[in-house]
């Protein structure tokens, strides 16, 4: 309501503060109209798909890299002191800071975006997974050892599944980081996708387009967090007996 009122009052020109639903003059711009048109024409959908593709690919790579590094850090004190320290240090650098370097190495576009995503998400997964592996209840390890489990078998059958709740929260965090990294990367480094479209919207001063994209970004972020990760986390916590349940 307030939004609509401000846009009607004419405090700002319509291209800076476009109305949401009701146009100022008949046939004028509204965010809703641009949003729907964008979806219909495929422009927004294509950009969304491009972004999701980078996100998904980056995320999958991050999970693999993160779990392997997490395992290495868990399995050796020496690696923990060296690699573990580097990982923590790198993680405290916001990943967008790497973009200039990434652009020099990989050029503008998809690869640079992917690099930023993996850097952010993989480090975060490394840290959460290695701490997850370390916090497995010793009694579960002892019980498994007494039944004859050892070495990688012990890791695969007990330590990894036992740290799944930890890892899921880590993945959820990493996913949010990755989503931010995709958009920031695309915004500055190109590569198509929503971020690039957002930058285009800025340069042609089409605030209706910018807002439409922001809506999509918000919807996707919320949807994945709530539908995928929150549900997964709930189910896992219940199964692993970490959530008090009276039933």
């Amino acid at each position: 309501m307030i939004w609509e009122a401000i846009s009607k009052l004419g405090l700002f020109p319509a291209f800076l503060w476009p109305p949401f639903i009701v146009p100022v003059e008949p046939g004028g711009v509204t965010i809703m109209k641009t949003f729907v048109n964008g979806l219909m024409s495929g422009q927004l959908i294509n950009a969304t798909l491009v972004s999701l593709q980078s996100l998904l690919l980056g995320f999958v790579i991050s999970v693999v890299v993160g779990l392997v590094l997490g395992f290495l850090i868990y399995s050796s004190k020496w690696i923990e002191d060296t690699l573990g320290f580097v990982v923590t240090a790198l993680q405290s650098v916001p990943n967008i800071v790497w973009l200039p370097l990434a652009i020099l190495w990989f050029g503008l576009g998809f690869s640079s975006v992917l690099f930023i995503v993996v850097l952010g998400a993989a480090l975060s997964i490394t840290i959460t997974s290695s701490s997850g592996f370390k916090s497995v209840p010793p009694i579960q390890i002892r019980a498994a050892r007494t039944m004859g489990a050892s070495g990688f078998q012990l890791f695969r059958t007990i330590i990894f599944p036992s740290s799944v709740p930890h890892i899921i929260s880590g993945l959820r965090l990493a996913w949010a980081l990755a989503w931010r990294a995709v958009l920031a990367g695309e915004l500055l480094g190109g590569g198509g996708g929503l971020g690039t479209l957002l930058d285009m919207g800025r340069s042609i001063q089409a605030m209706d387009l910018v807002f439409s994209i922001m809506i999509i970004i918000g919807i996707i972020g919320t949807l994945i967090d709530h539908v995928v990760f929150l549900q997964l986390e709930k189910a896992v916590l219940k199964r692993w007996g970490l959530q008090s349940n009276t039933a």
Binding site: I139, Q140, R142, A143, A144, P161, S162, R239, W240, G241
Partner: peptide, 11 residues
Amino acid sequence: VVFQEAGLFPW
């Protein structure tokens, strides 16, 4: 060994 806390695997 059977431990004081059963040490079952919750998953």
